[in-house]
Amino acid sequence: MATAHRASAATRTSAGMTGSAPALMTVEHATKLYKTETGSVHALDDLSLSVAKGEFIAIVGPSGCGKSTLLWAMSGLHDLTSGRVMLNGTPVTEPRSEIGMIFQDANLLPWRNLRQNILFPFEIKKINPAPFEPRIQDLLRQVGLAGFEKKMPRELSGGMQQRASIVRCLSYDPDVILMDEPFGALDAFTRDEMNLLIQRLWMETGKTIIFVTHNVSEAIFLADRVVVLTPRPGRMAHIFPIDLPRPRTIDMTYEPGFVQLTMEIKRTIETGVYVPADTPV
């Protein structure tokens, strides 16, 4: 269980690095086994993580390492086999209104126009959207979707759809935003554009964001800390603190320090163990 030791050590050190900010959300010894017809799949193994209020966390790892499982458990959509998720001191056992989720491929409802899609959370929660109207209009302007309210999702490009889903999530003002590979299906240019938008929204709103991705440079660009998981079952491999100044620019992703960090994280993903760059391989 050497890995587990290393994992908890990493959690502690990085918690120290974020200063004295109290943890808003914690994952405690999360283990998840999926039962399938051919046996069980061990997706997460004794994973612990603590997220401070207003922090931007990116989770990366090889495909099938349980990153999405971790995120879905944090959202309350999935149960853990053992361990628990805490938010504001209470365990998360089902979806909560303080948490907003942004899914892969925007996940708009194709039979509703853009405005009806944005009002969908209000409909489900049975909240009158009128008091939120200025906020929604402001968000639509910020993401460049003002005037597109009547469009159906299929009339929008992939980037526009994902921006609409960001507005849908932010419209009801959740404290924590969980993003599950939201830009995986977008082309590189649109992805850069979306990353800049997310950074700007995060800096303006001070939300806590947990962002799952398989794109290392996207993770470094956005995050305060990059969490690397091991191949299945997902354990903590290492947490990389990213102390690049903000606002970050796309140009920064080509600077030597950034590239160096990308290489280190990629190597950690491949081997499941953190080896500092100055160590000969």
Binding site: L77, P95, I99, F103, Q104, N107, F120, P121, I124
Partner: peptide
Amino acid sequence: LAKIALARSYGASTFQIFTKIRFPLAL
């Protein structure tokens, strides 16, 4: 499942999932 998860993430009931997701999908 993604659309059902979306509705669930806003705390939708089984009935809401039927009327807002399953039924429009089946229409």
